[in-house]
Amino acid sequence: MHHFPIVHWQGLNIDISAFLAIIISCVITFVLARLAVRNLSLTNPGKLQNFLEWTVEFVHSVIASTMPLNKVRPYLALGMTLIMFIFISNLLGLPFGIVTEVHDPIGWLGITSEDIQEEEHYALAWWKSPTADLSVTSGLALVVFILVHYLGLKQNTKHYLKHYFEPYWYFLPLNIIKELAKPVTLALRLFANIFAGEVLIATILMLSVWGIPFLIVWQGFSIFVGAIQAFLFTILTMVYISQATIHDEGAEH
């Protein structure tokens, strides 16, 4: 498997490929959104504006499926950012990869001659999906985790705190595990799907010419997986927010 280029700088371990991927994903997302709203038109929207409006409506319906319609509006921008950033991130690693083979020790990347001698081909991968990095997906999951519990505490204090002791007080540990499992599964699901996709692409590449048909099929499927994972991450975020903030009177036992 490839190694990632990690700069050791003032005690920090900076993964250049992940940083680069995050920056590129953010820039693509922002540029796409800006292009779409460049010539905003009330009556005659352009193609990109139309597409973005379709996305907004899609996200709106996704959020509306998890919570009452009148509470959707504040989360619309969050849902849009999540789905766009994750989808673009998922696709980023698909079209190509940049791999360099290292033969000599590189000081600023912390690669010593022992490292190179341990493996026959010591290769560095410079290009990947940011979501194929557990650090990134766990970062997103942490954002969601904090947001969910902050909103729950702020908007629905009594019922939010009460739900830890339901149905009986000694269910508290189970409830805490449940809450902790949410961001963990969120992060791991996204990371594992995209990482597995990229590993399989790397593996298919080893087949050289014979792998081309598999590569075509798998890349197509990876686009599908990327879309599904972006959708899942968004809808699960909204479900968690809805669970924490909205107290359904009808569900009282």
Binding site: N13, A18, I22, D133, S135, V136, S138, G139, L140
Partner: peptide, 9 residues
């Protein structure tokens, strides 16, 4: 890497 983690957030 926590650096990537923080940067992502």
């Amino acid at each position: 890497h926590w650096e990537t983690f923080v940067f992502a957030i």
